[in-house]
């Protein structure tokens, strides 16, 4: 039940981000929408590793298979760590590009280039 709730909120974040990327014109807003989408994806990944009543995957007591292992899945959390760092890198780079774009066009939107003619 909780898992479904997490997944539902993850999907609503993903769709919000998708909507922003598709409809916004301002590049900074597109970037923000991408970050919302990324948060949604990260939440989805983590919630797919959630089990009801599961503890954080740090062994604070001795555990044994016979008594049942009561942890949430650690692998999605490791994947999300990677994904967060990647998101940070792309955001930094995208901001640089937007800044560069702004310096040459005085606009934070895509402009039509007429270099070809």
């Amino acid at each position: 039940m909780e898992t479904m709730l997490f997944i539902l909120s993850a999907f609503s974040l993903i769709l919000t981000g998708l909507f922003g990327v598709l409809t916004r014109k301002n590049l900074v807003k597109i970037l923000l929408s991408l970050n919302i989408l990324e948060t949604g994806i990260n939440l989805l990944v983590v919630s797919l590793g959630y089990f009801k009543g599961g503890k954080a995957p740090i062994l604070t007591n001795s555990v044994s298979a016979a008594q049942g292992i009561n942890f949430v899945d650690p692998l999605p959390q490791a994947l999300v760590l990677t994904s967060i760092v990647i998101g940070l890198s792309t955001t930094a780079l995208a901001l640089t590009l937007i800044l560069k774009h702004f310096r040459s066009h005085q606009a934070v939107e895509f402009v039509k280039l007429e270099v070809n003619e």
Binding site: P57, I58, L59, T60, N61, S62, V63, S64, A65, A66, F71, P74, L75, Q77, A78, L81, T82
Partner: peptide
């Protein structure tokens, strides 16, 4: 030879109690 992990014992794989760290 056990299906259990006991804290304080020597020489488990990579020796980390934080499993996320062990994966990463």
């Amino acid at each position: 030879g056990q299906a259990e992990v006991i804290l304080g014992r020597e020489d488990y794989e990579n020796g980390a109690v934080n499993i996320v760290t062990a994966i990463v």
